[in-house]
Design a protein around this nucleic acid. Structure first.
Lengths: 210, 210
DNA sequence: TAGATTGTTAATCGATTAACAATC
DNA sequence: TAGATTGTTAATCGATTAACAATC
């Protein structure tokens, strides 16, 4: 649903990648078409919501037929901008940073990891997936030379504000934030996608009470 | 806000751990009291929402004064059930599973990690934080003996359904699911907390288009 | 007491669901 | 053409925001 300023609501945006993911699975299974009803059943959602969500961006289906999976997948890919690869750096190569650098398929999600930084002398110089961990001291110079557009923040709360400041000064526009630092408060015009694993775990704890 | 069946809405529940987290930071800073207005500014939310959310669970503030941070933190801890430690197993000790096992403070979030499983012979027998990785073949027997109540699913999509089946048969009630397998579809009465990092990354990609 | 801030009700706003006409 | 299923409008539902009386 479109809000009054013409923007797509955040509720819709958060669901779009999920459609993309389920369409990938269907493609792998060799399925070629699907109705909103079938897809809804697969995804544990409603046909109404799927059609509403998709129609925020255009008409991708065919009456009486349903949706062509390959085509819909491609259209959603365009919406999510995964074709335009943008440069990204990872700050913090501890356990979590390491896992994200080696586990994530950045290219298929619209990003290219061009640098990994840490301040720990034991980590500097080591490699993750063929990429060498660089000293945090070189971050500023690296950004000036290579102009990354976004950054993954995998450092502790205490270290985050200073690093984000450097990145902002170097025109980094987006943050994938795993730290507890509330970037949005200090930089309200920046794009921030927060991942708070401990919040998620506590939500599970709450839901298991019954 | 309470829904008609008397349950707290999921929107509220997802925000509660965030309050807990910000209160921890305030405690560390040595702050002892805060008003809903000040807390809202810190958290980039509204005072109204904070008061509404908290009042789903009880009256934790004092008119004319605000909230005692230590006390509110403790009350929210009770709501989130972090005092009742419940047994948990981790399935999949690859990059992501490894990072979660070593990075997460389970105890302070209401869980105790009692076993780590993988099918990779290269990993079996190795240690993560003093805990030995066990063969997947022993999962069923381990569950029968140790009765974990929840599981972290860090295996690929293809491996997930079979593992979840074994866990469900062993009365595992909650899943912290990092895989792309839609557990809820097959087991609607189970508690599932999904973490889809690739969805999150694509949301960032979308938001950076402008 | 006066000032401040909560707890809670009422008003607004937005998101989801249902229904149906359009059309392949 | 008849059947199926979309795109889209209308109705419902729920969540957020605003306002204010209660009270510390």
């Amino acid at each position: 649903m479109l809000s009054k300023n013409g923007e797509i609501s955040i509720s819709v945006i958060k669901r779009i990648p999920r459609y993309y993911r389920f369409l990938e699975i269907l493609m792998n299974e060799g399925v070629t078409k699907i109705s909103s009803n079938e897809l809804a059943a697969r995804m544990s959602t409603t046909a109404s919501q799927i059609r509403q969500d998709l129609n925020c961006f255009g008409c991708f289906g065919m009456q009486g037929y349903g949706y062509n999976i390959k085509q819909l997948h491609s259209e959603i890919g365009k919406i999510l901008n995964v074709n335009k690869i943008s440069k990204m750096v990872l700050i913090g190569a501890g356990n979590l940073g390491h896992a994200i650098a080696s586990h994530m398929d950045f290219k298929s999600r619209g990003f290219s990891l061009i640098g990994i930084f840490d301040k720990d002398p034991d980590l500097i110089g080591k490699e993750i997936n063929g990429m060498t961990i660089t000293s945090m001291d070189e971050l500023d110079a690296f950004c000036k030379k290579n102009t990354p557009k976004s950054a993954i923040i995998c450092v502790p709360y205490s270290a985050a504000p200073e690093i984000v400041k450097i990145l902002i000064e170097n025109k980094v526009k987006g943050f994938w934030n795993f730290s507890h630092y509330n970037i949005m408060k200090d930089y309200p015009n920046t794009v921030v996608e927060n991942v708070h694993l401990s919040d998620s775990l506590m939500t599970l704890s709450y839901q298991m009470k019954k």
